[in-house]
Amino acid sequence: MLKQHRELSMSIRRTIENNEEADSFDRNWNDFLLNFGLVDNKWLSDFYEDHHIWVPIYLDHHFWAGMRSRQRSESMHSFFNKFITRNSSLIQFVKQYDNCLGSREQAERESDAADFHTVILCATKSSIEAQFQDVYTHQKFREVQAQFRGKANCITRLTNSALGYSVYEFVVTYDSVAAEVKCQWLLFESRGILCRHALSVLSFERVSQVSLDIY
């Protein structure tokens, strides 16, 4: 029984998390129900009805600054645990809460000062990377640089093109008229940075600058 429970738990986690697109979740969910004989399970059927609010692939078009609700909760718990324990009294909680906020504000001021007075060198010669170097914080710019490094491993193939609108593998679309690039991974929409696939297409299209009003 324990082994079966473990297998079911691992399977449902894979079903929820390992999806490249929304359609793949639906297929994986149906396979999961069939494999474990749960097609007629009412609780799972009701649970599925709200899948658009708990399955990660359906949330990628929302901006989360790179975090999900569980991550935000875990991050805050980790932070407050430095100041408060389960044995803290109410008076101690109030005092430590003030100390906690003060510590957080100080850390943010130090981070802002570092962003203002120091510069992270560009990892490539891309003028687009240089643009983001000017507008992003150090933390966010490091995320961007990881995508620029990953771009070197991307092979850009054009699959369709018409009237200034091009479609590439991954799937990436580029609108030369509106100067907009979009990737199915929706990294910009969810984390505020362009992914390596989009950057690869911009390089392929010989785009040297992006509109900062859009990105």
Rank of each mutant, 00 (worst) to 15 (best):
Leu2Cys: 12
Gln4Val: 05
Arg6His: 06
Leu8Thr: 02
Ser9Pro: 03
Met10Asp: 09
Ser11Glu: 08
Ser11Val: 05
Asn18Val: 06
Asn19Pro: 03
Asn19Lys: 02
Asn19Met: 02
Glu20Ala: 05
Glu20Asn: 10
Asp23Leu: 04
Phe25Lys: 00
Phe25Ile: 00
Phe25Glu: 00
Asp26Ser: 11
Arg27Ala: 02
Asn28Ala: 07
Asn28His: 06
Trp29Lys: 00
Asn30Met: 04
Leu33Tyr: 04
Leu34Ala: 08
Asn35Phe: 01
Gly37Tyr: 02
Asp40Asn: 11
Asp40Ile: 03
Asn41Gln: 15
Asn41Trp: 12
Lys42Ile: 08
Lys42Ala: 06
Lys42Met: 06
Asp46Phe: 11
Tyr48Thr: 00
Glu49Cys: 10
His52Gly: 01
Trp54Lys: 01
Val55Ile: 08
Ile57Arg: 03
Asp60Trp: 00
Asp60Ile: 02
His62Cys: 08
Trp64Cys: 13
Ala65Pro: 07
Ala65Lys: 13
Met67Leu: 13
Met67Thr: 10
Arg70Ile: 14
Arg70Tyr: 09
Ser73Tyr: 13
Glu74Ile: 12
Met76Phe: 12
His77Pro: 01
Ser78Glu: 14
Phe80Ile: 12
Asn81Thr: 11
Asn81Lys: 15
Lys82Pro: 02
Ile84Cys: 04
Ile84Met: 05
Thr85His: 13
Asn87Phe: 10
Ser89Cys: 03
Leu90Phe: 13
Ile91Lys: 15
Gln92Cys: 03
Gln96Lys: 15
Gln96Ala: 12
Gln96Ile: 07
Tyr97Gly: 07
Asp98Gly: 05
Asn99Phe: 11
Cys100Glu: 02
Glu105Phe: 06
Glu105Leu: 12
Ala107Glu: 15
Glu108Trp: 10
Asp112Gly: 04
Ala114Leu: 10
Phe116Asp: 14
Val119Pro: 11
Cys122Asp: 14
Ser126Asp: 07
Ser127Ala: 13
Glu129Ser: 03
Ala130Asn: 09
Phe132Asn: 04
Gln133Arg: 06
Val135Gln: 06
Tyr136Ser: 10
Gln139Ala: 14
Gln139Thr: 14
Lys140Met: 12
Lys140Glu: 05
Phe141Arg: 08
Phe141Thr: 09
Arg142Asn: 12
Glu143Cys: 07
Gln145Pro: 11
Ala146Cys: 04
Ala146His: 07
Phe148Trp: 12
Gly150Trp: 02
Cys154Ser: 02
Ile155Ala: 09
Ile155Gly: 06
Thr156Val: 15
Arg157Pro: 03
Thr159Gln: 15
Ala162Cys: 07
Leu163Met: 11
Phe170Thr: 10
Val172Asp: 01
Asp175Thr: 13
Ser176Asp: 14
Ala178Asp: 07
Ala179Leu: 11
Lys182Ser: 14
Trp185Thr: 15
Gly192Leu: 01
Ile193Thr: 01
Leu194Lys: 05
Leu194Asn: 05
Arg196Glu: 05
His197Glu: 01
Leu202His: 02
Leu202Asn: 02
Phe204Cys: 10
Phe204Pro: 10
Ser208Pro: 00
Gln209Cys: 07
Val210Trp: 03
Asp213Thr: 06
Asp213Lys: 09
Ile214Glu: 08
Tyr215Leu: 08
